[in-house]
C-alpha cells in the first residue's frame, strides 16, 4: 500500500495523475463520435497536422504556439471536410495529403530552426512533467467545452452520426454539427498533445471507444463507458509509467491496449460482432452518394 501511495506524495505526480485522467476521459468521450463516423484516420491525421502548426508558430510567436497550432488544426479539419465534399477526392486521401504534408512541414521547421517551446521528442511522445499551469487550464477548459457540446447537442449529434440524411429532414443542421465536431476534436487533440504526444493521441481516440462498443449495444452507455475507460487508462498508465520509467503517453496507450485484450477475451465473439464494421455506416453513405 505504501508503495502505491508513495508517488502521490509528489506534487508533480498528483498534477500528472489529474492531467492524464482528464486527457483520457476527454479523448474517450469525443472518440465515440470519431469511431462511429468512421473518422479514426482523421484523429491520426489531425494530431500530425497540428504538429505542423506547432512548429510553424515557434518561428513567429513562440508564446502563442498553442493558439496557432489550434487554429492550424481547425483549418486542416475544415480543409479536409471541404475537399472531400467538393471534389472526387476521398476523405482518406484528403487526410493523407493535407495532414501528413503539414506534419512534414513541422519536422522540416524543427530541424532547420529548432524550438524555444517544447522539445521535438516531447511533442511527439508527450511529457506530463513538462506541462504548465496554463496548459492544465486549457485542458480543463476544453474538457468543459466538449462535455457541454455533447450534452447540449446530444440528440442532434447522435442523429447526424447515425442517419445524417434523415437528420437533415428532421431539422438538424448536419453541416454545422459536423463543423463544430471538427473544431472540438481539434481543440481536444491540441489540449492533450503535450500529455500523450502526437503519435499516440490517435490511439487514445480509438481504443476506449472500441472497448466500450464491445461492452454495450446502447449509445448512451457506450459514451459513458468510453469516457470511464479513457480515464482509467490515463490513471493506471500514469501510475505504471512512474514505476516503469517510460514516457506517460506510451504507458497510457499500452494500458488501453491491455484493457482491449482483456475485454476481447471476456466478451469473445459477442464483443467482436459488436465492434465489427464500426465504420460501415460511412461506407454506406459514400456508396449512396456516389450512386
Amino acid at each position: 500500500m505504501e508503495t502505491l501511495l508513495e508517488p502521490l506524495s509528489y506534487a508533480f505526480f498528483q498534477k500528472g495523475l489529474f492531467v492524464a485522467s482528464l486527457s483520457g476521459a476527454l479523448l474517450g468521450l469525443i472518440g465515440v463520435y470519431i469511431v462511429l463516423r468512421g473518422m479514426s484516420y482523421i484523429g491520426h491525421g489531425l494530431s500530425h497536422s497540428i504538429f505542423g502548426g506547432f512548429a510553424a508558430m515557434q518561428l513567429f510567436a513562440a508564446q502563442f504556439y498553442a493558439i496557432g497550432a489550434g487554429l492550424w488544426g481547425i483549418a486542416s479539419a475544415l480543409a479536409i471536410t471541404t475537399v472531400t465534399k467538393r471534389s472526387r477526392v476521398g476523405a482518406d486521401a484528403a487526410i493523407g495529403v493535407i495532414t501528413i504534408a503539414s506534419f512534414a512541414l513541422g519536422v522540416a521547421l524543427f530541424a532547420k530552426f529548432g524550438t524555444s517551446g517544447p522539445s521535438f521528442e516531447n511533442a511527439l511522445f508527450g511529457s506530463i512533467l513538462g506541462i504548465s499551469t496554463g496548459q492544465i487550464i486549457g485542458l480543463v477548459a476544453v474538457t468543459i467545452l466538449t462535455s457541454a457540446f455533447v450534452l447540449l447537442r446530444y440528440r442532434a449529434l447522435l442523429f447526424s452520426t447515425f442517419d445524417p440524411d434523415v437528420a437533415k429532414v428532421s431539422g438538424v443542421n448536419v453541416g454545422r454539427i459536423e463543423a463544430a465536431l471538427m473544431v472540438v476534436l481539434s481543440l481536444a487533440i491540441l489540449a492533450t498533445l503535450t500529455v500523450i504526444g502526437v503519435t499516440l493521441v490517435a490511439a487514445m481516440l480509438v481504443i476506449p471507444a472500441v472497448i466500450a462498443r464491445m461492452l454495450t449495444d446502447s449509445f448512451g452507455r457506450m459514451l459513458a463507458y468510453s469516457t470511464v475507460i479513457g480515464m482509467l487508462s490515463g490513471l493506471i498508465g500514469m501510475y505504471l509509467s512512474y514505476y516503469a520509467g517510460v514516457p506517460s503517453g506510451t504507458m497510457i496507450v499500452l494500458v488501453g491496449a491491455a484493457l482491449f485484450i482483456v475485454v476481447l477475451a471476456s466478451t469473445g465473439g459477442r464483443g467482436l460482432r459488436r465492434s465489427a464494421g464500426l465504420d460501415s455506416h460511412s461506407e454506406d453513405l459514400v456508396a449512396e452518394k456516389s450512386a
Binding site: L36, D165, G277, S280, D284
Partner: peptide, 14 residues
C-alpha cells in the same frame, strides 16, 4: 439498406 445495423443504439434511443 442504407442504415448501419451495427450502430450501437436501442429501439428506444433510435
Amino acid at each position: 439498406e442504407t442504415v448501419s445495423w451495427n450502430f450501437p443504439i436501442t429501439v428506444f434511443e433510435c
